[in-house]
Write a protein that binds this DNA or RNA. Structure first.
Length: 234
DNA sequence: GCGACAG
DNA sequence: ATCTTGTCGC
């Protein structure tokens, strides 16, 4: 049985859901473990921010994940790791975590130090059941996580102002589940949501600091490039 | 029933 | 996510 506030990552992996109904049940069971009461690290803190990403080859049934650790202040790459596996779940909107997490966990385990913050491609709280990829990865690892997505999924938003740093609420009805964040002037915004153990203001501030030169955070760009290389070499 | 739908 | 060349622009 689960102890309140504690889950076993190994047990969750052992009992990976076989179908969509089971997967949704897992999300409903794990959702109460998400912690939204911690402010999380400030941008530029002493430590590492890790970007994770995954690439697929459906024809070969191969998935490659990458984890790239950056110095949180300077954004210099300080560590990186990859992992290759078999595709464990089809892509179903709302169930992305079940497709990505097993291999991502492998890659994270191969880093030489524990991340202080993990940046995911996709969403955390901004999810039909408030438990997206970033929330799920946060609960399984216990690490602070955020989600940075390239499109608004099923949610609505007004375009933020044109300046870098401008934001607007990402809405599910009237509930703010994340924010549209302009990381570069005049460039389409990214969509930030909280995963685990960080608040939305800090999640946006971290994203802005990491996206100093491009639309997407350096963490995401580095992890994306690395997992593609890992897939090609697999 | 129809359309929308992170990666 | 992935299939994919050249091309317009700073």
């Amino acid at each position: 049985m689960d102890t309140p506030g504690t889950i076993s990552c190994d047990d969750e992996l052992r009992n990976w859901p076989a179908g969509e109904d089971q997967a949704r049940a897992v999300q409903d069971r794990l959702r109460p473990h998400v912690r939204l009461d911690e402010p999380g690290p400030e941008p530029g803190f002493e430590g590492t921010v890790v970007g994770v990403d995954v690439a697929y080859d459906d024809a070969r049934d191969v998935v490659a994940a990458a984890a790239v650790a950056l110095d949180a202040r300077t954004r210099a790459v300080v560590d990186e790791a990859t992992a290759v596996g078999q595709i464990s779940f089809p892509y179903v909107p709302g169930l992305l975590a079940f497709r990505e997490i097993p291999t991502v966990l492998d890659a994270l385990a191969r880093l030489t130090r524990t991340p202080d913050l993990v940046v995911c491609d996709g969403y955390g709280l901004a999810h039909p059941r408030r438990f997206g990829l970033a929330s799920h990865l946060g609960v399984l690892t216990g690490l602070p996580t955020i989600g940075v997505a390239k499109n608004p999924f099923t949610f609505h938003y007004a375009l933020p102002g044109p300046d870098r740093g401008a934001t607007s609420p990402l809405l599910d009805g009237t509930e703010e589940v994340g924010r549209a964040l302009r990381t570069q002037r005049g460039v389409k915004p990214v969509f930030v949501s909280v995963g685990h153990r960080i608040d939305l203001d800090r999640a946006c501030a971290q994203t802005l600091h990491l996206a100093a030169h491009y639309r997407l955070p350096e963490t995401t760009r580095a992890a994306d490039a690395l997992c593609r290389r890992a897939l090609a070499d697999a």
